[in-house]
Every structure is written in C-alpha cells, then in structure tokens.
Amino acid sequence: ELREAFAKVDTDGNGYISFNELNDLFKAACLPLPGYRVREITENLMATGDLDQDGRISFDEFIKIFHGLKSTDVAKTFRKAINK
C-alpha cells in the first residue's frame, strides 16, 4: 500500500519525490486550501521528511513521514491528496 502511494506521488518514476511532485499532488487533489498553504505544507513535509537533505524524498524517508504523521492535519491532507 505504501509503495503504491509512493509511486502515485513519484510521477516521473525516478524513485524519489521532489518538492514539485508533492506540490503538484496537493494542487491536483483540489483541496480547499489557498496556494500559499499548499506551499507551506509541501515545505514542511520536505523539511521534516528529507532526512539526508538531498532535496528529494526516498521511499525509506516516505515511510518515516507517513508513519510519523498519524493524526495531524498535514497527514489528513496528505492522505486525501494521495487517495484522489
């Protein structure tokens, strides 16, 4: 299930999730959020999830993000976006 969610976000299939891919995910989900809020959520996920600070999120980092977000608003938003 997590591998499928990761693949859905990794639209270019390079094995990593970029800032733009995350941002595009939230935009495509048509969530009722202003653009600046989408950017804040994306920046927050990148800042906390990109553990090796290479500017992208690997599958291992994605798993840690996903499990670390349990019930936060960001987690709910992220799950809604993935499930669209």
Rank of each mutant, 00 (worst) to 15 (best):
I41H: 02
G49L: 06
Q53M: 10
T42G: 05
R56E: 10
H67L: 04
M46F: 10
D24W: 01
K27L: 05
G68M: 15
R39I: 06
V38C: 06
T72F: 11
E43N: 14
V74G: 14
E61R: 04
D54K: 11
D60L: 03
Y16F: 06
K70A: 07
M46W: 07
A29H: 06
C30W: 04
R56N: 08
E40I: 01
D73I: 11
F62V: 12
N44K: 13
T72G: 13
K76F: 09
V38G: 03
H67P: 05
L69F: 08
L51N: 05
E21W: 00
L22G: 00
Q53K: 13
G55D: 10
S18Y: 04
D60K: 11
N14T: 13
L33P: 05
E43P: 01
K84I: 06
P32Y: 06
L33I: 12
T42I: 15
F6I: 01
R39V: 05
L25W: 04
F78A: 15
K80E: 13
C30H: 14
N83K: 10
D50N: 07
D12F: 05
A75D: 14
R79D: 15
Y36V: 11
F66R: 01
E61I: 09
I17G: 00
N44E: 14
I63Q: 14
S58K: 05
L69S: 07
T11C: 06
A29D: 07
A7Y: 02
I65S: 03
G35I: 04
S58R: 04
F78N: 15
N14E: 04
L25Q: 00
D50A: 11
C30L: 09
D60H: 09
I82T: 11
N23D: 14
R3W: 05
D10F: 03
G15T: 01
K80P: 15
K70M: 15
K64Q: 07
G15N: 02
L33N: 11
F19R: 06
G15S: 01
N23R: 08
D12S: 08
D73S: 09
N23Q: 14
K84L: 09
V9I: 14
G35F: 07
L31D: 07
L2V: 00
G55M: 06
K80D: 10
R37H: 13
E40S: 04
E43V: 02
D12P: 01
V74N: 13
D50T: 13
Y16S: 08
A28N: 07
A81H: 11
R3F: 01
L22N: 01
A7S: 15
D24A: 10
G15V: 00
T42E: 08
F6Q: 01
N20S: 12
K76C: 12
D60M: 03
N20I: 02
E40V: 02
D73T: 13
I63S: 11
H67C: 07
K70S: 09
L31S: 08
R37S: 09
A29R: 03
A28M: 11
S18V: 02
S71P: 08
P32M: 04
L2I: 02
P34F: 03
K8E: 05
D10S: 01
I63H: 04
T48N: 13
K8D: 04
G68V: 11
L33G: 04
I57A: 00
L51S: 10
G13E: 03
F6W: 12
K70P: 09
T77H: 10
L22K: 00
G15P: 00
D12A: 11
R56M: 12
A29G: 07
I17Y: 01
R56D: 04
F66W: 12
F26W: 03
D50C: 07
F6K: 00
D60C: 04
L51D: 06
R79W: 06
K84C: 11
A75M: 10
I65E: 03
D12W: 02
F59A: 04
D50G: 11
I41Y: 06
D73P: 11
K64Y: 03
D60R: 06
G35L: 12
D10I: 02
I57G: 00
I57Q: 00
R37P: 03
I63R: 11
N23I: 12
F26V: 08
S71G: 10
F59S: 02
L22E: 00
F26E: 00
I82F: 08
S71I: 14
Y36S: 15
R79I: 08
L51K: 10
I57L: 09
E1R: 15
D60P: 11
D54Y: 06
F78G: 15
T11E: 05
Y16V: 03
A7R: 07
I57H: 00
R56G: 04
C30S: 14
I57C: 02
M46T: 13
G68Y: 11
F62L: 06
N44A: 13
G55R: 07
A28Q: 11
H67T: 10
R56F: 08
F59P: 02
P34W: 03
L51R: 07
D60A: 08
T42W: 11
V74H: 13
R56L: 09
D50L: 05
F19C: 12
K27T: 12
A5W: 02
D50V: 07
Y36N: 15
Y36E: 15
P32N: 14
D10K: 00
A81F: 05
R56W: 03
K80I: 10
R39H: 08
T77D: 14
D24L: 07
R3G: 03
Y36D: 15
N14R: 10
V38W: 05
G15W: 01
G49V: 05
H67A: 10
R79Q: 14
R3D: 02
N83D: 13
T77F: 13
L45T: 03
F62D: 00
T48L: 07
N83P: 14
D12L: 06
N23E: 15
F59V: 06
E40M: 04
V74I: 10
L45F: 10
K27F: 03
G55E: 08
N20A: 12
F66P: 00
S58N: 09
G35W: 07
S58I: 00
H67K: 13
L51P: 06
G15A: 01
A75Q: 13
E61F: 01
E4D: 07
N44P: 03
D50P: 05
K64G: 05
D52N: 13
E1C: 06
F6G: 00
I65R: 02
A75K: 12
Q53R: 08
K70G: 08
N14W: 00
G35R: 11
E43Q: 12
D24C: 05
N44D: 11
D50F: 05
L31K: 10
E21Q: 14
K64I: 03
Y36F: 09
L2M: 04
A28V: 12
L51A: 08
E1W: 10
K8M: 05
L69E: 12
T48E: 12
R79S: 15
A47F: 06
V38D: 02
R3P: 01
L31W: 07
R3A: 05
I17W: 00
L2N: 04
D60Q: 10
A29Q: 08
V38R: 04
R56P: 03
P32F: 03
E1V: 02
K27A: 09
K84R: 13
L69R: 04
I57V: 07
L69N: 07
L69I: 10
D52H: 13
F66V: 14
N14F: 02
G68E: 15
G13I: 00
T77A: 11
G35M: 12
G13M: 04
K80S: 13
A28L: 12
P32G: 07
I57E: 00
L25H: 00
A7T: 13
E40H: 02
L22R: 00
V9W: 03
M46H: 08
L51W: 08
G35E: 15
L2Q: 03
S58F: 02
K64M: 03
K84A: 15
A75T: 14
T72N: 08
R3T: 04
D73V: 08
K84E: 15
F26I: 10
R39Y: 04
K27I: 09
N14S: 09
L69V: 12
V74R: 12
Y36K: 14
R79T: 14
E43I: 04
F78S: 15
F78W: 12
I65T: 03
I65V: 09
F6V: 01
K8F: 06
V38P: 02
K27Y: 03
N44F: 06
E61K: 06
F26Q: 01
R56Q: 13
K80T: 12
R79M: 10
S18G: 08
G15L: 00
G13H: 08
G13N: 13
D24G: 04
L31A: 09
A29W: 06
N83S: 11
L25V: 15
I17A: 00
N14G: 02
T77P: 14
R37L: 09
G13A: 04
L45M: 10
I65C: 06
Q53Y: 06
K84Q: 15
K64R: 10
D54Q: 10
